[in-house]
Design a protein around this nucleic acid. Structure first.
Length: 428
RNA sequence: GGGGAGGUUGCAGAGCGGUCAAAUGCAACAGACUGUAAAUCUGUCGGCCAUGCGCCUUCGGAGGUUCGAAUCCUCCCCUCCCCA
C-alpha cells in the first residue's frame, strides 16, 4: 500500500491531522466536499509557512474534493489575534488589494482551477464583509456569540492577561471568520474548514454558527504548527523570511533553504511539503539513517518543493549553481557562466573608476554591497576570517581590490561565511 | 482621584556619581569541527578614524547640579500594580 485510500488517512500518516471534528473521516470517505482555508493578506507574498495549507488544499483536490482558498481581504483589515502577542498594524484597503493579486498567483501554482468536477476557487471575503451592515450583523450573527465564549478563547485570554490588552477590533475577528464559513456554506456548500492549529477556536466557532443558523453540519480540521528540531522558527534564515515570490527570495536561496534542512526534520517536511508517497518517503527515511552525509532526502525535498513553487527550470538552475558554488573554483569559470549562476544572487554595480590604481578597500566593498552594516563590522568579519573574494579568504582586513583582481576584469564574487554570496559587477 | 513600582544597547535583565559603550543570559554574525546537517567549542556583537588604550553618539524626553551622570535634582511623556 503506497497511498492511503482516503484523504483523511492520507493526511493522518503525513502527520497533518492535529485535531478534527467528530465524524469528519466518515464524511470525507463518503462524499466529495467543498472545503476552505484562509490565507493572510498582510504581505504581497506568501512565505514557506503558507506552503503547508497550500499543499493541503492541493491534496484535497487530488482526492476529488473542491478546495477554496479564501484570501482575507475583509478579515485582513481586522487582524487575527491568534498567535499574536501584540495588536496588529492595520492595512489600508489598497495595500490589501495589491497583496491579494500576488497571493492569488502563488496559490495558482498548486491548485487546478480548470478541473471539470472539482475546480479550485479563490475568493475574497471582502466581497461580503465590506458591505456588511453593522446592525444586521449584530442582530443576525452577533446574537449567536456569547462574550463568555469569546473571552474563553485562548488567543483572547492570553491578550487579556497582557498589559496592552486587545482591541475590540481584533476581539471581533472570531465572529467575522465564522461569518465567512457561513457565507461559503451558503454559496458553495462548503462544509469543511482547515487551518493551522492556532485556528481551532476560530474554526469550531464557525461550525457552531453554521449549525445554529442553517442547521447544517460543518467540520473542521487543523494541522500542526511546523517546528524545527533546533528550536528556531520555521521559515527563517539569516536573510529573514523565506518567501514564495522569486523577487523576495530567489529560487536559488529557496532551494538552498530546503537543502539545508536538519536531518531530524527532513522526513517530516517530506510528508508535509511534497506529494511523495509513503514508500518513497520511507526509502528516504532509511537513507537518512544509513547515509546521512549524502543528504539524499534533503536534496529530494529541495527539488520537489522548488519545482512546485518555481518550476523545474528553477530547480535545474539552482542545482547547477549549487554545484559550481560548492564545488569548483570560481575564478576558473567563464564570466557569462558566473553571471548566469549568480542571476539569483544579490548584486551591486560599481563604477570602474573606483577600481583603478589603489582600488577599493575590502571594508568599503562590504559596506557598499550591504554585506556588512558598517565598516567596523566589515573589519571584524575579515579579521575573523569570514570574508571571501572569488572564493578566496581575505586574510588582510586592509586588502584593496582593483580590476586586476576581478574575474575577466568585471566580476568580484563576495562571500560572507559559508554561503552568503554577493556579486559586484564593475561597470564597463 | 489617592498610593506604589518602573522606562538601560534586538529581547530579557544588571548597573545606581568616575575604573560604563555599559555585567550576564538569549538571539544574531563569523571561525574550528563536519555532511552546504546537528551538537560542541572559540571569537565578535553602537559608530568613525585608525590601531591610539583616540574620537563621536547612546541608558524614555527636556533642562539642571557637578571637574565628571545611565547613576543626583526639577519638569514632562509613557507603562504596570494596589486602593477608591
Amino acid at each position: 500500500m503506497t497511498m492511503a485510500t482516503d484523504v483523511f488517512g492520507e493526511l493522518a500518516w503525513r502527520g497533518l491531522v492535529y485535531e478534527s471534528t467528530e465524524g469528519l473521516r466518515e464524511v470525507l470517505a463518503r462524499e466529495k466536499v467543498t472545503l476552505y482555508i484562509g490565507f493572510d493578506p498582510s504581505a504581497a507574498s506568501l512565505h514557506v509557512g503558507s506552503l503547508l495549507p497550500m499543499m493541503a488544499l492541493a491534496r484535497m483536490q487530488r482526492f476529488g474534493h473542491s478546495p477554496i482558498a479564501i484570501v482575507g481581504g475583509g478579515t485582513g483589515m481586522i487582524g487575527d489575534p491568534s498567535g499574536k502577542t501584540a495588536e496588529r498594524q492595520l492595512l489600508t484597503v489598497d495595500q490589501i488589494d495589491a497583496n491579494l493579486a500576488g497571493i492569488r498567483s502563488q496559490l495558482a501554482r498548486v491548485l487546478d482551477f480548470d478541473a471539470a468536477a472539482n475546480p479550485a476557487r479563490i475568493v475574497n471575503n471582502a466581497d461580503w464583509l465590506r458591505k456588511l451592515n453593522l446592525l444586521d450583523f449584530l442582530r443576525d450573527t452577533g446574537k449567536h456569540f456569547t462574550v463568555n465564549y469569546m473571552l474563553a478563547k485562548e488567543s483572547v485570554k492570553r491578550r487579556l492577561d497582557q498589559e496592552d490588552g486587545i482591541s475590540y477590533t481584533e476581539f471581533s475577528y472570531l465572529m467575522l471568520q465564522s461569518y465567512d464559513f457561513l457565507m461559503l456554506y451558503d454559496q458553495y456548500k462548503c462544509t469543511l474548514q482547515m487551518g493551522g492549529s492556532d485556528q481551532w477556536g476560530n474554526i469550531t466557532a464557525g461550525c457552531d454558527l453554521v449549525r445554529k443558523l442553517r442547521a447544517g453540519k460543518a467540520h473542521g480540521l487543523v494541522m500542526p504548527l511546523v517546528t524545527t528540531a533546533a528550536g528556531v522558527k520555521f521559515g527563517k534564515t539569516e536573510a529573514g523570511a523565506v518567501w514564495l515570490d522569486p523577487n523576495l527570495t530567489s529560487p536559488f536561496r529557496f532551494f538552498q533553504f530546503w537543502l539545508n534542512t536538519d536531518d531530524r526534520d527532513v522526513v517530516t517536511y517530506l510528508k508535509y511539503f511534497t506529494f511523495l508517497v509513503q514508500d518513497e518517503i520511507q526509502a528516504l527515511e532509511a537513507e537518512v539513517r544509513t547515509a546521512p552525509e549524502k543528504r539524499v532526502a534533503q536534496r529530494t525535498l529541495a527539488r520537489a518543493v522548488t519545482a512546485v513553487v518555481h518550476g523545474q527550470d528553477a530547480v535545474d538552475r539552482a542545482e547547477h549553481a549549487s554545484g559550481l558554488l560548492f564545488g569548483e573554483r570560481i575564478s576558473e569559470l567563464d564570466v557569462d557562466d558566473i553571471i548566469a549562476v549568480f542571476d539569483d544572487v544579490p548584486s551591486t554595480d560599481m563604477p570602474a573608476a573606483l577600481f583603478v590604481t589603489s582600488g577599493v578597500a575590502i571594508a568599503d566593498l562590504l559596506v557598499a554591497t550591504k554585506v556588512a552594516a558598517s565598516k567596523g563590522e566589515a573589519m571584524r568579519l575579515v579579521k575573523g576570517g569570514g570574508v571571501y573574494v572569488n572564493n578566496r579568504r581575505v586574510a588582510d582586513e586592509r586588502a584593496r581590490f582593483t580590476a586586476a583582481d576581478a574575474i575577466a576584469g568585471r566580476i568580484l564574487v563576495l562571500r560572507k561565511g559559508a554561503r552568503q554570496y554577493h556579486l559586484v559587477r564593475i561597470e564597463q
